[in-house]
Design a protein around this nucleic acid. Structure first.
Lengths: 259, 259
DNA sequence: GCTATATTCAAACACAGGTTTGAATAGACG
DNA sequence: CGTCTATTCAAACCTGTGTTTGAATATAGC
C-alpha cells in the first residue's frame, strides 16, 4: 500500500512514475473510452461502462488517471492529436492553386466526419463540448479549432486579397466552415428532412464539390470586383485565386489528402 | 389522496384534468425550467434547482408533469411554438423578390439566436438535443426543423429553377442554414478565434448581410448559367431571382420581421 | 359549516454512479 | 527465497438526484 504524501489532502492521485510509455491497460482504457465519450458525452458516460468494455476493473481508471475527468482529458488530448489536423495541414501545405487547396480542405474535413474506421468520433466529442463544456474545451479549441481556422483564414484572405484579420475574411471563413459542420451538428435534423441522404464516399464527394462551388462563387466574384476597382499588388498566396468558373461538378481534381 | 387506477402499473401520473389552462405554479415551473434546461441540457439539469428557482416544491414537478421528462417535453413544446417559427414564416410569406425574402429569413434566424430577452435560449436546447438526443428530439425536428427547412427548400428551389427535391436545391439550403447555425453551435470556437466578435445588433446585421451576399453569389450565378443553357419556363416564385449583384454592404433593405 | 377534491409540503426512499479501501497478485531485485 | 513495489480486484462507501409518500392545507360545491 502506498502512503500518500501528507500535503495536498484532496488530490490523492498515486500517478505511476512514467504515464507516457505504453501501458497496455492504460491504452485499452483510452481506446475504449473514446467512442463511448463521443456517443454519450462526458456526464452521461459511466466509468463502469468503460471499464466493462475494456475488461478492466473500475478502480483501474482511478489508478491510472486519477478520476473520470483525467481519463476524459487524456481521450481529448489523443483526439486532438489525431489525423484531423494532419489531414487539414497537409491539404493546406500542398503546392496548388488556392481554389484547389480550399476544395481539398473542404473535402478532407468532410471525409474525416464520416469515416467509420478511426477518427470518426472525434468530431462528436467536439459537439458535446460545445453543448456542455468541460475543462477540456480550452484544449480542444486551442489544438484543433484555432490552428485550422487560422490557416483557412490565411488561405481565404489570400484569395480575397484581404488581410486575414479583415472582417470580410473572417466572415467568409466562417461561411465555409459552417457549411461543413452543418453535416455533423445537424445530423438528426437532416435525417428528418432528407432521409434518403446516405453518407457514402460518393455522396461525401458530391457534397464537398458543392461546398467548394458554393464558396468559390462568392470568393472569386469578390476578388474580381475588388481587383478591378482598386488594383493593389497581388499577394503571392493569391496569385491563382482569380480563375473563372470551371465547368461545374466535373472537377474531382483527384488530390487526395491521405497518402 | 388519489387512488391510482390499477391498470398501467408503471405510468402512475395523476395528471390534473385540464393541463391546458393557466395554472400559475405550472407556468412558473415551465418558465424557470426553460433557461436552465437550455444551459445545462436535460441530464445535467436537476429538478431541485428548477424547483428552487421557481420557489416551488420538488414534488410539484411530479404532480404537474409526471416526471422530469414530462416537464422537459412541455418546455420543448413551448419552445417550438415560440417566436422562431413565426418570424421565419412571416419572413417567407411576405410579398417581395425572392432574394430579399432569403435575406429576411437569414436575418430573422440570426437575430433569434442572439437576443437576450425572450427566445434566446430556444436554440441552445436544440444544440443539446443534437448532442444528446432525448425523446423530445422528434418533436423538435418535426415542429421547428422540418417546416423551416421545407420552406427554405421551396424558396431556393424557385430561385435556382429546380424542384425542391433536387439534390442541388437541398445542398444549397444546407449551405445557407449551415452558415447560420455556425454562429450558435461554434460559439466557443469563435470566442477563441475571433475574440473581438460581439453580437451587437449592428454586428448581427453585418453577418446577415454577408451570409446573404455569400449565398446569393452562387444561387444567382447558377440560375443565370442554367437558364442560358436550358431555357425552361420560369416558375412564378423565381421571377425575381436573377438580378445582378447590387452594390454590397449597402443593402439593409429594412424589412424587419418583427412588428 | 361540511365534505370532497385539488394542491402543496417536508421527509423519506431507492438507486445509480464516482470514489475509496484494503486485500490479493505479480514482478523486480537482492 | 524474501521483500518491496506496482498493479489488479471485489467490495464497500457516499453523495447526488429522481421519485414516492402521507400528511397538511387550500378550494369548491352543497
Amino acid at each position: 500500500m502506498v502512503m500518500l504524501p501528507p500535503a495536498k489532502p484532496r488530490s490523492a492521485r498515486p500517478r505511476p512514475r512514467r504515464p507516457s510509455i505504453s501501458d497496455p491497460t492504460r491504452e485499452r482504457l483510452i481506446d475504449c473510452a473514446g467512442p463511448i465519450f463521443a456517443d454519450r458525452g462526458f456526464q452521461a458516460t459511466t466509468i463502469r461502462e468503460i471499464s466493462t468494455v475494456a475488461g478492466e476493473n473500475v478502480a483501474a481508471i482511478h489508478y491510472h488517471f486519477g478520476d473520470k475527468l483525467g481519463l476524459y482529458s487524456e481521450v481529448v488530448l489523443r483526439s486532438t492529436r489525431a489525423a484531423q489536423v494532419d489531414a487539414i495541414r497537409s491539404a493546406l501545405a500542398q503546392q496548388a492553386p488556392p481554389d484547389q487547396i480550399l476544395r481539398a480542405v473542404i473535402r478532407a474535413r468532410l471525409q474525416s466526419l464520416n469515416r467509420r474506421d478511426l477518427p470518426d468520433w472525434h468530431f462528436r466529442i467536439l459537439l458535446h463540448e460545445f453543448a456542455s463544456p468541460t475543462p477540456a474545451l480550452g484544449q480542444v479549441v486551442e489544438h484543433v479549432g484555432r490552428p485550422i481556422f487560422l490557416r483557412v483564414l490565411d488561405l481565404i484572405g489570400g484569395m480575397l486579397g484581404l488581410p486575414p484579420t479583415d472582417e470580410r475574411t473572417r466572415l467568409c471563413a466562417i461561411s465555409v466552415m459552417g457549411q461543413i459542420i452543418a453535416y455533423v451538428f445537424a445530423t438528426p435534423l437532416l435525417a428528418g428532412v432528407w432521409p434518403e441522404l446516405k453518407m457514402t464516399p460518393e455522396q461525401v464527394e458530391r457534397i464537398a464539390t458543392h461546398i467548394g462551388d458554393f464558396s468559390l462563387a462568392y470568393i472569386q466574384t469578390f476578388r474580381a470586383q475588388h481587383q478591378a476597382l482598386e488594383p493593389q499588388p497581388v499577394s503571392p498566396a493569391a496569385r491563382n485565386g482569380l480563375r473563372q468558373f470551371e465547368k461545374k461538378s466535373t472537377s474531382t481534381a483527384s488530390l487526395r489528402t491521405t497518402p
